[in-house]
Amino acid sequence: MPHRRKCTLGKCCFCISLYCGSILIAFYTIMSGLLNAATLADDIIFRKNLSSDNWVKWFNIGHVCLMIAAAVILLVAVMTNHILSIQIWMGLFVVHIIGYYIAYHAVINVRNPFFSSALSTVLYVLVILLTLAIDIYSLIVVYSRYNQLKNPQDYMPKCVDRT
């Protein structure tokens, strides 16, 4: 299908196979989940005055669990070439993108005291846009790996006999 090839990548970062790129994305997902867990623990343990709502902690705990579960699912799916697990990861990752970037950053962090100056606000927005771009690229790479597993005939080199 020519339309399917337009929506996918041939390699991750122009030099790594989609298999290795998907494994790197699984480790990126684990690391970002652990980083979110560390910041959550810092907020819960060391902050005496809570400036955010109580449900924000539960949202963060759910988000951390979602990220780590999704990373483990992706790692197992890529190692075993299990197509359904890759679809599950893509669904969980879309939930992460919607929940984290819309619900958390757009709704909750608007009241953040970090926005005291224009420079800090610009830096915060730039970091969020950078991580959003990395997450969308990760989703495209894993979708390309999924498409490669589902339709291997479309990814065979032209010199290979297809009979």
Score class of each variant (00 low, 15 high):
residue 81 N to H: 06
residue 144 S to G: 08
residue 93 F to A: 07
residue 128 I to C: 10
residue 38 A to W: 09
residue 66 L to T: 00
residue 158 K to A: 13
residue 118 A to I: 11
residue 40 L to I: 05
residue 121 T to F: 10
residue 68 I to R: 06
residue 123 L to M: 14
residue 108 I to S: 06
residue 57 K to D: 13
residue 19 Y to M: 05
residue 34 L to G: 03
residue 19 Y to H: 09
residue 61 I to A: 08
residue 20 C to R: 07
residue 156 M to A: 12
residue 135 D to M: 08
residue 28 Y to I: 00
residue 127 V to A: 10
residue 146 Y to Q: 09
residue 80 T to Q: 08
residue 153 Q to K: 13
residue 144 S to R: 02
residue 96 H to S: 12
residue 151 N to T: 08
residue 158 K to T: 07
residue 66 L to E: 05
residue 159 C to Q: 08
residue 126 L to N: 04
residue 61 I to M: 10
residue 148 Q to I: 07
residue 88 I to K: 01
residue 124 Y to C: 07
residue 136 I to F: 01
residue 101 Y to L: 05
residue 124 Y to Q: 03
residue 113 P to F: 06
residue 122 V to Y: 12
residue 10 G to S: 13
residue 109 N to A: 09
residue 152 P to N: 09
residue 81 N to Y: 02
residue 127 V to R: 14
residue 134 I to L: 10
residue 64 V to R: 03
residue 49 N to H: 15
residue 93 F to W: 12
residue 52 S to Y: 15
residue 119 L to Q: 08
residue 117 S to L: 04
residue 58 W to F: 15
residue 95 V to A: 14
residue 151 N to I: 07
residue 158 K to Q: 05
residue 144 S to W: 04
residue 107 V to A: 14
residue 58 W to D: 07
residue 18 L to W: 02
residue 30 I to H: 06
residue 11 K to Y: 08
residue 32 S to E: 02
residue 4 R to D: 00
residue 18 L to G: 04
residue 75 L to E: 08
residue 140 I to K: 10
residue 16 I to N: 00
residue 137 Y to N: 05
residue 47 R to V: 07
residue 86 I to S: 04
residue 62 G to D: 05
residue 105 H to P: 00
residue 21 G to A: 09
residue 9 L to T: 02
residue 51 S to L: 04
residue 139 L to V: 00
residue 63 H to M: 06
residue 99 G to Q: 05
residue 132 L to S: 14
residue 142 V to M: 10
residue 123 L to R: 10
residue 103 A to F: 04
residue 4 R to M: 13
residue 40 L to K: 00
residue 51 S to A: 11
residue 133 A to G: 10
residue 33 G to Y: 03
residue 104 Y to Q: 06
residue 59 F to W: 12
residue 64 V to G: 03
residue 33 G to V: 06
residue 11 K to V: 02
residue 97 I to K: 01
residue 9 L to G: 02
residue 118 A to H: 03
residue 76 V to H: 09
residue 119 L to Y: 11
residue 59 F to R: 11
residue 105 H to R: 03
residue 64 V to N: 03
residue 46 F to E: 07
residue 67 M to E: 15
residue 92 L to T: 02
residue 7 C to P: 00
residue 104 Y to C: 07
residue 130 L to F: 15
residue 77 A to F: 04
residue 4 R to G: 13
residue 22 S to W: 08
residue 81 N to Q: 04
residue 45 I to R: 05
residue 140 I to C: 11
residue 106 A to T: 11
residue 127 V to Q: 10
residue 11 K to E: 11
residue 9 L to K: 06
residue 136 I to T: 14
residue 99 G to A: 01
residue 75 L to H: 02
residue 29 T to Y: 00
residue 85 S to G: 13
residue 48 K to Q: 12
residue 111 R to K: 13
residue 82 H to R: 06
residue 51 S to K: 13
residue 150 K to N: 11
residue 155 Y to S: 06
residue 14 F to S: 14
residue 137 Y to L: 11
residue 128 I to A: 10
residue 159 C to W: 11
residue 38 A to N: 07
residue 59 F to T: 12
residue 34 L to I: 10
residue 93 F to I: 02
residue 140 I to T: 08
residue 52 S to I: 05
residue 157 P to D: 09
residue 40 L to S: 07
residue 135 D to C: 11
residue 145 R to E: 03
residue 131 T to L: 15
residue 126 L to M: 13
residue 100 Y to H: 10
residue 66 L to P: 01
residue 36 N to W: 01
residue 87 Q to P: 01
residue 46 F to P: 01
residue 143 Y to V: 06
residue 94 V to R: 01
residue 49 N to W: 14
residue 50 L to W: 05
residue 26 A to H: 04
